[in-house]
C-alpha cells in the first residue's frame, strides 16, 4: 500500500487485505460459529461494501486518482520497511500469555504503524480514510491474535462502526470538495485555537 501511486490500486489492495483477514478468521474458527459469522461479516462489510463505496466516491468526486504525498515512493518504502521492522521488534513483548496466534501480533502492530504513516504522509482526504482503515485492520488483527475471540456483538459492532465511519468520512469529503474545490488536507490550515 505504501508504494502505490494509484488510488484504485490502493482500494483494491485494501479489499484484498480484508479478504485475507476474513479467511484468517475462518482458519482460526475451528468450527466455532461466532468466528465464522465474524469472518463472514468482515468479508461482506470490509471486503465488499467499503471498497465499492470508496470507488463510487472517487467516481463522484471526479478527482485525479493519483496519490499525492509529502514523501517520495522510495522514501515511503524505506520508512515503511523500517516501521514494519519496529513492529516486529517491539511486537514480541506485547504477546499476552495464551495468545491464539502469537506470530500475528508483530504483524498487527506493524500494520497499525504503517496505517499511521499513511495518514501522516499523504495529502488527500481519501488517502487519510484509507490509512485509518488500515490502522483499524491492524487493531482487528491484534484482537484476533491475542484473544480467543471477542464477543460476536463487539466484532460485528466494530465492523459496522468502521463502515459508518467510512460513510461519514465520504460525506464529509464530498462536502469539503464542494466547499473548497479540492480535498487536499495539506492546504487546510484553519484548524487551530
Amino acid at each position: 500500500m505504501v508504494g502505490r501511486k494509484s488510488l484504485d490500486a490502493l482500494i483494491r489492495l485494501y479489499a484484498l487485505q480484508n479478504v485475507l483477514l476474513g479467511l484468517l478468521a475462518f482458519v482460526l474458527a475451528e468450527g466455532e460459529l461466532h468466528f465464522i459469522l465474524a469472518g463472514l461479516g468482515l468479508l461482506l462489510i470490509k471486503g465488499v461494501l467499503i471498497p465499492l463505496y470508496l470507488f463510487r466516491l472517487l467516481e463522484r468526486l471526479g478527482i485525479s486518482h493519483e496519490v499525492e504525498s509529502y514523501l517520495s515512493i522510495p522514501l515511503s518504502l524505506l520508512l515503511g520497511g523500517l516501521l514494519a521492522g519496529v513492529g516486529f521488534w517491539v511486537g514480541r513483548s506485547f504477546v499476552l500469555e495464551g495468545a491464539r496466534l502469537p506470530e500475528a501480533v508483530p504483524v498487527a502492530i506493524g500494520l497499525i504503524l504503517l496505517g499511521m504513516l499513511f495518514m501522516v504522509s499523504r495529502k488527500k482526504a481519501v488517502t487519510q480514510v484509507l490509512g485509518f482503515l488500515a490502522l483499524e485492520n491492524g487493531v482487528f488483527l491484534l484482537a484476533l491474535a491475542e484473544t480467543h475471540g471477542l464477543p460476536l456483538f463487539i466484532e460485528i459492532g466494530v465492523a459496522l462502526d468502521a463502515f459508518a465511519a467510512v460513510v461519514l468520512a465520504g460525506v464529509l469529503i464530498f462536502r469539503i470538495k464542494e466547499t473548497f474545490q479540492h480535498i487536499d488536507t495539506a492546504r487546510m490550515r484553519e484548524l487551530k485555537g
Binding site: V86, W89, M116, T185, A186, R189, K192, G193
Partner: peptide, 29 residues
C-alpha cells in the same frame, strides 16, 4: 502550547504518531 497548533492536519497526525511510537518504546521490554 498554541505554537504547536499550526493548523496542519498532518502535523497533528504526526504528533499522534510520535506519541504512539513513544508509548511503544516505553512499554517495550
Amino acid at each position: 502550547a498554541q505554537r504547536l497548533q499550526s493548523g496542519s492536519l498532518h502535523l497533528y497526525l504526526l504528533l499522534q504518531f510520535l506519541a504512539l511510537l513513544f508509548v511503544l518504546g516505553v512499554s517495550w521490554q
